[in-house]
Nucleic acid binder design. Structure first.
Length: 141
DNA sequence: GCCAACGTTGGC
DNA sequence: GCCAACGTTGGC
């Protein structure tokens, strides 16, 4: 089981909306590094959901319901048998008891090399196993 | 294939 | 609102 971090601008799609709608297709990713990360997502993986913009905090946890599959809106685009524009379906698990801000994460030396800190524009990334527990402890997820 | 110009994201 | 840090595009 891999934990990912997905960023979203809450004005465009919020974790609250995911809680209300119970399921979402995570699409609209265009950046290649983010697509490569998303392509590796498998059913049973989990997702820390991060709000960008005014919030800048990890706000909730979701589960990955499907393996990465080709975006139905971009059919036929494949690369080595794998979807070039992968999407996954996710469902909310729960909101964070204590959302953890980017400032907190940046201030914590354990997260020094985390892509969230080092590559501010990356919107999908795996959470390194060593950082998964600390992040869940801080968020209560 | 290189790289200058331009566009975008997201933190500040 | 600005701009750093990217990514993308297109001329050559």
């Amino acid at each position: 089981m891999v934990t990912f971090l997905f960023k979203t601008e809450p004005g465009a799609y919020s974790f609250e909306r995911l809680l209300a709608e119970k399921r979402a297709v995570w699409d609209g990713i265009t950046n290649n590094a983010a697509l490569a990360a998303l392509r590796a997502a498998r059913k049973g993986d989990e997702v820390l959901v991060y709000h960008t913009g005014d919030v800048k905090a990890i706000v909730g946890l979701a589960s990955v319901l499907t393996n990465a599959y080709p975006d139905p809106n971009h059919p036929g685009l494949t690369e080595g048998g794998l979807p070039r524009t992968p999407v996954v379906d996710i469902a909310p698990i729960r909101a964070a008891r204590s959302p953890v801000s980017l400032a907190q994460i940046k201030a914590d030396r354990r997260f020094r090399d985390f892509a969230l800190v080092k590559q501010s524009r990356l919107s999908v990334m795996p959470v390194p196993p060593a950082l998964d527990k600390p992040l869940r402890q801080l968020t209560g997820l």
